[in-house]
Design a protein around this nucleic acid. Structure first.
Lengths: 68, 68
DNA sequence: ACTTAATGTCAATTAAACTTTACATATTAA
DNA sequence: TTAATATGTAAAGTTTAATTGACATTAAGT
């Protein structure tokens, strides 16, 4: 799973803090997702997609089978 | 957040066990999501959408602000 | 040089997804 | 009636998302 959250955030000229407040999480969560330390919950993914007015698939790219 | 996972599963004529194996989780996880006890991770949502050949938004319906 | 804003790391904790096991019920088939 | 399949519940444990707080670095402005 990869994402281009940073690109969308830049496009909207927002700081991590501002985006965090928009989608109701902390700044650390935004950082962790941008740096792909972990994946967002489905709800957070929806909140981000809704905020940027795109589909989840536009921000998050699923690469099937990192494992099996 | 609501979902129509049960509908998709029925459409493909799969048991919970079969679907669970297809997307690499346990049967309990499928049950919990169908009964909306909790939401799937983004990865699992992608696996399900990919399996049924639809978009995440087709299976999971986000209703903004259950809270704030 | 000093301050402020933005980004980043790290560690400890809480909350929620997911697993595992065990058991209950209903349905269908032998 | 018995066995097998499908769905369901419940509890305890593991894993991971998300929070909180503290501190480091860089860039921009005064």
């Amino acid at each position: 799973m990869t994402n281009n959250l940073k690109v969308f955030r830049a496009r909207y000229d927002l700081t991590q803090k501002e985006l965090a407040e928009e989608v109701d999480v902390t700044r650390q969560t935004i950082i962790s997702i941008e740096k792909e330390r972990y994946e967002p919950s489905l709800t957070l993914a929806f909140k981000l997609a809704t905020y940027f007015d795109v589909k989840i698939e536009d921000i998050f790219l699923y690469e099937k089978s990192t494992d099996n």
